Simulated scan of single mutants.
Amino acid sequence: MNPYQSLPPRSFWRSAVAEPDPADIGGLWTPKFAVGQDDTVLTAGSCFARHIGRALLERGMNWRDAEPAPPGLSEEERRARHYGVFSFRTGNIYTAATLRQWLSWAHGETTPPDEVWAEGGRWYDPFRPSVDPAGHPSADAVRAARGTTLAALRGAVAEADCFIFTLGLTEAWLDRENGTVQPVCPGTVRGTFDAGRYAFHNFTFAEVHRDLSHAIELARAANPGLRVLLTVSPVPLTATATGGHALTATTYSKSVLRAVAGQLAQDHEYVDYFPAYEIVTGFPFRAGFFEPNLRTVTPDGVAFVMRQFFDALARVPAEQPRPAAVPAQPTTGEDFWCDDAVLDYYHQG
């Protein structure tokens, strides 16, 4: 006997991947901990993360919207102002460094800069450039709105049972003046680009591991019982500022993020990894879960990912019935929610 003779079929490429119909491939995730029907769950991260909160709500689970929309807003207004997208209105959080920054501000470890951007008689938050597209009437109103989000983040983390965070990118722009991480490159979604002030940075494995570890430590210092479920977005980079090819830049980013998530899940019993990235981009699916642009994940792809998620959770001993299959959900297009998608506008030729 050798160790491979006692392995189950799921451990072999031929029986687990090559031979089954892609729709029948299952068992891709064995959760380390249960997420029950009554557990308070938070979601944040890249644009793909928006699907998770919606799916949790549709299953009747306790997804926490820490910043609900004020009364009187239309559905279009709520959507435009990012209400109900993530658990708090930070906008997309693409990098581990940005997550660390938000948690550091929320828990008083550091203080956010006072800077605001003025355009056309309105004021905007540099750290949430697309959250309030109509802007604010004053600089103080921007700071007050940011303070509301920080308070919501702080309160939600303190009360949550599980935090699901979707990693998206390793590329970012750093502010040389105040040391902050910009959510997107200034001068794209909003603001003005200053080459003397903003520096491009492509985070390494060690840096992502450092930032994500510190972010998790900050959250668990406020809530020692918090469990963290990491995912990696399957959505590729819209554009890369490395000077390299977009395909190889995407491979670098996703490889680093996947490796960090796997390392943290291996090192901590309270951290797990769900393979949304592998499910969408894996060999057997032959890019069938992408729209023709090879970037936007189709409704069927989202449904397949979430079915794998809930089916796996249903196998964890818990006091809730097995959930039904997730139907395909309509979409208005991934790029609506992805701040970095604006970079495609700058594509020439």
Rank of each mutant, 00 (worst) to 15 (best):
L56K: 07
A16F: 11
A206H: 12
S213P: 05
C162I: 14
H136E: 13
S255G: 14
V17R: 13
W337S: 02
L174I: 03
A261D: 09
P321D: 11
A287C: 05
G179R: 08
T248Q: 12
K32Y: 01
I52R: 05
A265E: 10
A328K: 05
L313I: 02
E115R: 14
D175H: 07
A312H: 08
T98A: 15
L294S: 01
V142A: 12
R197W: 06
A265R: 06
L230N: 11
A80F: 04
Q101P: 05
R286V: 03
G168L: 13
E75N: 09
S46Q: 11
V184Y: 07
Q182A: 13
H347P: 00
H245L: 06
C162P: 01
A312I: 06
A287I: 02
D194V: 10
G60V: 04
P137Y: 08
P133V: 02
A206R: 15
P70W: 00
G36I: 00
E177N: 06
L313M: 13
P8M: 08
P31S: 06
S104G: 15
L57S: 04
D300T: 04
P129N: 11
E171L: 12
G120R: 13
L73R: 09
Y124N: 05
G301E: 10
T90A: 15
M1Y: 10
L226P: 00
L212F: 07
G84V: 06
A118L: 05
G155L: 01
